[in-house]
Design a protein around this nucleic acid. Structure first.
Length: 573
RNA sequence: CGGGGAGUAGCGCAGCCUGGUAGCGCACCUGCUUUGGGAGCAGGGAGUCGCAGGUUCAAAUCCUGUCUCCCCGACCA
């Protein structure tokens, strides 16, 4: 591609709305143009990278037997009523009406449509397993779109859906996809981790997210430094201590703690460690208030509490709400708690020999509280794991914390949709059974953004060669000189003939400008053609990633370039 | 949805307080000089000042309403 005929207007200055690096660089390199909040045009330079990511996805999914199809973006409300999601999905679902006032939505995901396809087409166990996928634009009306392509409303997604006869073969389909995902993200040149994630209410035993490691990631993930355990912090398991089993040495003592409402104030006033205090948090489910207790120096994991209660929603209550259920804000504890509250206690709390708890009375706490003084409670792991915790799986490991960008998820749906939408097959005995489903997503455009988040420096993008919009950029410093033009044209043609994608900067710019621009664009290899070197029969080859530069003979430069590309993992297709 | 900020040329911004011919830098076009790390000079094109209403002889500027965008938080199959 000749730069003079391409659409690629780079910016020297960073538009002010961009705060994360991928967003800034994508704007500066003319990759995206915003049309509305969370809605972008993918410009030519970006589309080239998107197509490469898609190509890798297609190859790896086809390899494990997935079959590509393409479903409609606009979906009738009827289908969503069958699954129950027309009511439940909420405002993220973009709804609309056609001219006949029939209701439709723009697809945020395609469980309903794919289940409908399969229930019409499949009858027999002999046709299973089946895994259908598509790559398509999705729309989710996010509450707060942000960070460019990292959290857009419209985005390109690969979604796949597996159909199996039972849970066992569904597991096999799941792990096949898990391995395919590892190959996909590896081939994209990304540093990533598959992590255990929360499966919510329908998910069942496990689900994994694939995270690209980057400081700007919105998720915290924890991984073991010894074994391969890794989990989203909201799902991360905690090694729990045994309850303190020694005898009660003393009765709880009621002490005056005027105005000491926070853990910090109480521990300072009484001269005890925060880890000896008990923190109480009041939540509300749809039906009932719930009181949770964790150690004073810990953070509560709301996902853990939600799962323990088996509820989809949980709301943290404020002081006013606390008074309504008979609590004294700041002095809440497990002893003499008002009736009608369900009490949940983290195991760590019960490992404290003598703890400090609120007295459920104004300006008072109990000290010397022994585990046996807790009454009418249930024990469940409630605290959030953090870096430095021992690994929950192996004996030697310690957890380390990372920021991650979620680029993919594999998920077991089981029979949620096949039952509600009646997608069934006949087994060998002629019995009708619901298919067991899995779903598997990859955010294509988010993957591209994550790649930039992970691969850049002060000068600009550093594309992994596998997903780079071009493999090589050829800079002509003396456009108009017959010698330079001739050499550049010849090499441009030769590289192109050998399957190398070249961005040929044949514009009449000054050298400094071209160098800066090439660094900004981040194409893996720069080939520099200028009189100064060419007079000695040389061209200059620079590796964008390492900054390494060397001069090579004009006659050798095509082979040298291809060798350097191969070294970075380039494969000619 | 709560809190904060911003809409003036493609991008970055000034002008608004104190109403009176809409400006600067980058980018773009023309010419000359320059040419190995974002050149210099000269000339030029480009803006319904987010939108609507009001006050006024006169509104980018004052008043009211409204829309959009960004950031923090809540939320995120």
């Amino acid at each position: 591609m000749r730069r003079s005929k391409y659409l690629l207007n780079t910016l020297k200055e960073t538009p002010k709305e961009a705060v994360v690096i991928s967003h800034q660089l994508m704007l500066r390199t003319c990759m995206i143009k915003q049309l509305a909040s969370g809605i972008y045009t993918y410009m030519p330079f970006a589309v080239r990278s998107i197509r490469k990511i898609e190509r890798i996805i297609r190859q790896e999914l086809d390899r494990v037997g997935c079959i590509e199809l393409l479903m409609p973006s606009v979906q009738p409300a009827d289908l969503w009523n069958e699954s129950g999601r027309w009511k439940n999905y909420g405002k993220e679902l973009l709804r609309m009406k056609d001219r006949k006032e029939n209701e439709f939505c723009y697809g945020p995901t395609h469980e309903e449509v794919v289940t409908d396809v399969v229930r019409r087409e499949l009858r027999s166990y002999k046709e299973l397993p089946l895994n259908l996928y598509q790559i398509q634009t999705k729309f989710r009306d996010e509450v707060r779109p942000r960070f460019g392509l990292m959290r857009g409303r419209e985005f390109i997604m690969k979604d796949a859906y597996s159909f199996d006869v039972d849970e066992e073969t569904c597991d096999a389909s799941y792990w096949l996809m898990y391995e395919a995902y590892k190959r996909i993200f590896s081939r994209c040149g990304l540093n990533f981790r598959p992590v255990e994630a929360d499966s919510g209410l329908i998910g069942g035993d496990y689900t994994h997210e694939f995270h690209v490691l980057a400081n700007s990631g919105e998720d915290e993930i924890l991984s073991c430094n010894q074994c391969d355990y890794a989990a989203n912090v909201e799902r991360c398991e905690v090694r729990q201590p045994a309850a303190f089993s020694g005898p009660e040495l003393d009765k709880p003592r009621r002490v005056a703690t005027p105005d000491a409402k926070t853990i910090e104030e109480v521990s300072n006033l009484l001269g005890v460690q925060p880890s000896q205090c008990v923190k109480a948090l009041l939540y509300k489910t749809e039906n009932e208030p719930v009181l949770a207790f964790i150690r004073g120096d810990r953070t509560l994991n709301e996902t853990a509490l939600r799962n323990a209660l088996g509820v989809p929603e949980l709301e943290l209550l404020n002081e006013g709400d606390a008074r309504e259920v008979g609590l004294v804000p700041g002095f809440v504890g497990p002893i003499n708690a008002p009736d009608g509250l369900s009490l949940w206690v983290d195991p760590e709390v019960l490992a404290i020999e003598a703890s400090v708890v609120g007295a459920n009375a104004p300006d008072a706490h109990f000290t010397h509280v022994h585990p046996s003084h807790f009454a009418n409670y249930q024990v469940t792991s409630l605290r959030q794991a953090f870096a430095g915790d021992p690994c929950p799986r192996c004996d030697e490991g310690v957890l380390a914390s990372w920021r991650g960008i979620e680029v993919g998820q594999v998920f077991k749906l089981k029979t949620k949709y096949s039952e509600s939408m009646n997608a069934s097959y006949l087994d060998e005995q002629g019995h009708s059974k619901p298919m067991v489903m899995g779903c598997y997503g990859i955010g294509v455009t988010r993957t591209m953004a994550a790649a930039i988040e992970q691969n850049h420096d002060d000068a600009g993008i550093i594309w992994p060669v596998q997903i780079a919009p071009f493999h090589v950029t050829l800079l002509s410093l003396d456009v108009g000189s017959d010698e330079v033009d001739g050499a550049a044209e010849t090499v441009y043609q030769a590289l192109t003939d050998r399957g190398v994608e070249v961005l040929y900067d044949d514009t009449k710019g000054r050298p400094g400008f071209k160098f800066k621009d090439a660094d900004l664009l981040g194409i893996p290899i720069q080939l520099v053609f200028g009189k100064r070197s060419l007079n000695q029969g040389l061209v200059d080859l620079k590796m964008r990633g390492t900054g390494e530069k060397r001069s090579v003979a004009l006659a050798e430069c095509v082979d040298e370039t291809i060798a350097a590309l191969r070294q970075q993992g380039w494969e000619h297709h």
